[in-house]
Amino acid sequence: MEIFSKDHKLFRLIHHNYNLLPVLNRFGIKLGVKEKTVENLCLEKNINPNFFLAIVNTFNNEEYFPQEELLSFSPLEIIEYLKRTHRYYLNYVIPKLDSQLEELIQSRTSENQGLQMVSQFYRTYKEELEEHIDYEEKTVFPYIEKMVTNNKSEGNYSIISFEKEHTNIDEKLNDLKSLIIKYLSPDYNENLCNEFLITLFRFEKDIYDHARIEDVILLNQAKRIEKNIR
């Protein structure tokens, strides 16, 4: 477990944890990072380095909680980042899961009821995820954005009511994995099934850290602002 700082070389970050790659992309960073440090690159890309490090460290390190940095960047920056993450899920990960699952289903040689059930379950999960993202983008984020720009809260909505939302979705993703790992009947192409499962594992990790950034950083900030306004 390592905590990254401004002086760390970016290529070391990537060697250390390649799951950070999509995170870096969300900041507009692409490969070919040469010998640049975090600070160099942030300066070049016009990124607030404290914000960058808070995200990267929270992502890299499950127990990390950026207490000091919390105040030093705007909720609007976080929202922008979270929206880019949502786009990544909706435009890349979900279509990838769709097509991998489709291929897997095509590979079966009999009816394979298990696979069909899994596919049905995946669809309900996907719907829920899309609804959830929609809810965040249309309700939660605008509420926080208005609070920050107008310096007052609107309506009876409170940020606390949002907190419990995440758990259901995490639960379903985990169930999906368990169903495949424990209860699938063996009539399918194993390589295709592995691919699908691996994509699920990686997605689960990414979305888990994404939810942590929302819960730990954004909601805490929003609560603080809400308290000051009311």
């Binding site: 009821q113 298990g114 059930m117 899994v118 049905q120 379950f121 309900t124 259901n168 639960e171 379903k172 985990n174 169930d175 999906l176 368990s178 169903l179 424990k182 209860y183």
Partner: peptide
């Protein structure tokens, strides 16, 4: 079972 959601348990029950 390692399954928590109601719809997940339903799939389990069917399988």
């Amino acid at each position: 079972t390692g399954i928590k959601s109601i719809s997940g348990l339903t799939v389990y029950a069917i399988l």
